[in-house]
Design a protein around this nucleic acid. Structure first.
Length: 570
DNA sequence: GCCGTTTTCGGCCCGACTGTTTTCAGTCG
């Protein structure tokens, strides 16, 4: 049973209770669900180790919810949830995912029109039954119909890697067309989440109306969802929703915090303000009508008695307590990486020559790079054999000579076979500087089988790195399940390091897996897996993921200078 | 239903925007 499944049930309970207009309980269930969803540890494992008592320790989980989690873990279902669903046989999750639908409307439409599903909703709207209800009208009905239509073609969240160029361009255009003193993208974008649901942009301007006009009439806008004096929302042609908010310079910091989130992080901060007898909003920290702080984020955190929390850490998974104690880790920086350890050239499935790739690496300021073309039987990727590797070694030496100030290492990406052995003999791997092993086929094997494969590869004395350890491709292929405790232990034992693959649709390990790995005391590497020199720019997404997992510089091996790095991988 | 350096009872984040209202409810983030 995965955390996400348990969270889903708890969210479901919250929705159903809200429809019944039960007070406060929905919030409690939602809070617990959020915590569980965001936890890096497996909740089944926590229960296995510490029983119900350990569940009680989870923030937001008390006697009643822990009992329910226990029942879910034991039986796979929850009687209380089933009873609620029987009482209100409505697809709350589906209906509430429609823009403009909340618990109150779901309830009314169910009670008065018998709407149980999105399909029912569409039918009722088309028949003009919704506008006849009190408090609703033509506009509500039309908007709902529109929202249903949109939800059908909505593809979900957008990759951070895809959203970043969109955001940067949008900001550039706004800067040119309106009077803007300050502008920054906030939200999950600024927290470097792997995908973003929408884009939040914050602006300081002396001409707010002009900014709103410019924003809502951007070429890329397909629909204006809301337009006000300080806040507007639009949907772009590519489906991305963008919210823009205008604030005073005096509130810039608190507004940036509010807009950056996460929501749960902000709620905790507000509670801290309340305890001090103050109020925290996007306008600042207030004592009565007097603003105590708000101009910068630093100022607001300081006022609350905390360290500045880097945006990547604002997920309310323990960072607030650390910041209050002054014990936040110093995170690995975006410029701390000294060398990329996984990239491909024309020797296998890359599209550029070794020299082109190395020159780009030098431009980025790396002091070493390791070329890791595919070897062995991976024919699609043009796997090299032992002989070809020797030939490539000569070119590597030549390029190493030719390009000053950067060391070129020879590595290889080798396949992990079904039984955990490698498809390349040890004799071929022996002479390489860095050996990367990865699974490229048989993604469907169960947890036990995949764990055995990975552990097998780690036990090979030549293997230094396990690349993209869970095989996931965001939005396309699910991660295979691994027994993380065993993998982490083996990583430490054999000094075989797990990779954070920086490709925007991989980010594998994920932030949560990385967090768990670091907690277990593992060290990691961050690689781009570049197949073209432009892919080297993706390193930032890997570092962002590491920062989200609270990684310090010392946790990431390729922040070390060459000599120390070589010593570390042994 | 959860939580506690004001509390084991009585609180529970805060504000903008919209539509349908003539003072507000619902939704959203």
């Amino acid at each position: 049973m995965e955390n996400s499944k348990i969270a889903k049930i708890l969210f479901g309970i919250a929705d159903l209770l809200e429809m019944k207009e039960v007070e406060f309980k929905p919030r409690a269930y939602r809070k617990a669900a959020q915590t569980i969803e965001a936890m890096s540890q497996d909740i089944a494992g926590i229960y296995k180790q510490g029983g119900k008592k350990a569940l009680d320790e989870i923030p937001g989980v008390g006697a009643s919810i822990s009992e329910k989690i226990e029942e879910i873990l034991k039986t796979g279902k929850l009687k209380y949830y089933e009873k609620l669903r029987k009482e209100t046989p409505v697809d709350t999750e589906g209906l509430m995912s429609i823009e403009g639908m909340g618990p109150k409307k779901v309830k009314r439409l169910y009670k008065e029109l018998g709407v149980k599903s999105v399909k029912d909703l569409e039918r009722a709207a088309k028949k003009g039954r919704i506008k006849k209800l009190k408090g609703m009208g033509q506009k509500v009905e039309a908007e709902l119909l529109e929202a249903v239509k949109f939800s059908k073609k909505k593809t979900g969240r957008m990759l951070l890697g895809s959203a970043m160029p969109t955001a940067e361009e949008l900001i550039e255009v706004l800067k040119k067309t309106a009077k803007i003193d300050k502008i920054e993208a906030a939200g999950s974008f600024r927290r470097w989440m792997e995908t973003i649901g929408d884009l939040d942009i914050l602006v300081v301007s002396k001409d707010p109306a002009g900014v709103m006009d410019a924003f809502t009439s951007l070429k890329s806008v397909s629909k204006v969802l809301a337009k006000g004096q300080t806040k507007s929302s639009v949907r772009l042609g590519n489906g991305l929703q963008v919210d823009l908010r205008i604030v005073d310079m005096s509130s810039w910091g608190s507004a940036l915090m509010y807009f950056t989130g996460s929501k749960t992080h902000n709620i905790e901060l507000r509670k801290i303000a309340i305890k001090k007898g103050w109020k925290l909003s996007e306008y600042g920290v207030f004592k009565g009508d007097k603003q105590l702080a708000g101009k910068t984020e630093d100022e607001v955190y300081k006022k609350l008695g905390m360290q500045f929390v880097p945006p990547e850490m604002r997920e309310n998974i323990g960072e607030i307590e650390l910041a209050l104690d002054g014990k936040l880790p110093s995170l690995v920086g975006y410029n701390d990486i000294k060398g990329d350890l996984q990239f491909h050239t024309k020797w296998s499935d890359g599209t550029e020559t070794l020299e082109q790739m190395v020159r780009k690496g030098k431009e980025l300021g790396y002091s070493y790079m390791c070329v890791t073309d595919h070897v062995g039987t991976l024919k699609i990727a043009g796997g090299l054999d032992e002989k070809a590797l020797k030939k490539q070694a000569k070119e590597i030496a030549a390029v190493d000579n030719m390009v000053d100030g950067i060391a070129v290492l020879q590595g290889a990406e080798v396949n992990i076979l079904a039984d955990g052995t490698l498809d390349m003999p040890d004799s071929a791997l022996k002479g390489l500087d860095v050996v990367i092993a990865a699974i490229h086929s048989g993604f469907r094997g169960g947890r036990e089988k995949q764990t055995k494969r990975v552990l097998g590869a780690m036990e090979n004395e030549h293997v230094d790195i396990i690349a993209h350890p869970t095989g996931r491709v965001i939005g396309k292929r699910a991660a295979y399940d691994l027994d993380w405790q065993k993998v982490f232990d083996k990583s430490k034992e054999t000094k075989t390091y797990l990779e954070i693959n920086a490709f925007p649709d991989r980010l594998d390990l994920s932030d949560m897996n990385t967090h768990a790995a670091l907690k277990a005391g593992c060290k990691l590497v961050i690689n781009t897996d570049a197949h073209h020199s432009s892919h080297f720019e993706n390193m930032k997404f890997g570092v962002g993921t590491a920062r989200r997992a609270w990684a310090r510089k010392s946790d990431i091996l390729n922040t070390l200078p060459l000599k120390k790095f070589m010593k570390a991988i042994g």
